[in-house]
Design a protein around this nucleic acid. Sequence first.
DNA 1: ATAATCTATACCAAATTAATATATTTGGTA
DNA 2: TACCAAATATATTAATTTGGTATAGATTAT
Lengths: 133, 133
Amino acid sequence: MHITLESDYAIRIVLYLSQIQKRAEAKNISENTEVTLRFALKILRKLVAAGIVKSFKGTQGGYELNKAPAEITLAEVIETVEGTYYLSRCLDPQLGCNRENRSSPYCKVQREFARISDYVRKEMQGITFDKLV
Amino acid sequence: MHITLESDYAIRIVLYLSQIQKRAEAKNISENTEVTLRFALKILRKLVAAGIVKSFKGTQGGYELNKAPAEITLAEVIETVEGTYYLSRCLDPQLGCNRENRSSPYCKVQREFARISDYVRKEMQGITFDKLV
DNA sequence: ATAATCTATACCAAATTAATATATTTGGTA
DNA sequence: TACCAAATATATTAATTTGGTATAGATTAT
C-alpha cells in the first residue's frame, strides 16, 4: 500500500547488489545496507520470489541480481514488498472505503486519488536501478 | 505524512459542510459522515485551527465552512490532519533517512521520491471542494 | 560429514493510527 | 443571571500496522 521503511530497505538491498555486481551473502548485504540480518533475509526472500534476486544455498552461497539493473524498476521492488501502491487506503481493494451509506460505489475524491496513484505508479515504473547507482 | 483514514474523515467532513452550506452541530456532522462523534470533534478542532472551518459555541452553536468550497483544496485539508505529504518517510524532515553511513546527504532515490511527492502535492493543491461535491 | 548458507513459519515488540473518556470553558436563551 | 447546549483541551485506551526476532529445517561446497 504505502511506502514504508521496508521498501526503503528493499531498495537499498537491490541498489547494493546493483553496485557490486556479484554474489554477496546475507551478512555482507546486511552490514552494507544497515538492515538487520534477519529482516534483510526476510526481504531477500520476497525479492527472490519476485524474480528480482537469485539465491544460492550452502557454502559460498548468497544472493545476486537475477537481471540487469536497467531491467529492474523502482515500482517492481516497492510492490514486491508493499503490494500495489495506492495513495489512499480507500483505493485498496482489500480495504476499500469504510463508509456504509455511500451513494455511489466510487466517489469523486476516490477518482482523484486513483488518478494520482496511477501517475505515481507510472513514474516509479520508469525509474530503473541503473539510474540510481 | 501518508494519507490515512483520518484524512478520509476530514475530507468527508469538509465535503459535507460544502454540500449543506450551513451551520451544523458536531452530532449532525458525525451522523452524516459516519465518523464517530469524538473523533469528528477532534478533527473539527484541527480544521478550525487551520482556518478551514469556523466554530460557534453554546446553544445554536456548531460548525460551518470559513470559506467557499472553491477556495478549499484537497491538499489543505489533508495537510491539516497529516502534516506535509511525503511519498516516503525518508523525505520527512522529522524522520529522515535512518541510515548512518550514507555517503551523501541526499541519495538519488530520495531525489526521485522528492520529485514525485512534489507532483502529488501540486495535484492535490489543484483540487478544490467545489469540484468534489 | 560438516560447516556455511539460505528457507519457512511463527512469534513478539514497537510504533502508529483510531477511538474514547473526563473535565472544562464558552455563549445563547429563558 | 442561572442554566443548558454546545465546543475545547488533555489524557488515556484500543486496534492495527510495521519492524524485528526466534527456532527449526533444508541444501550444498568442500
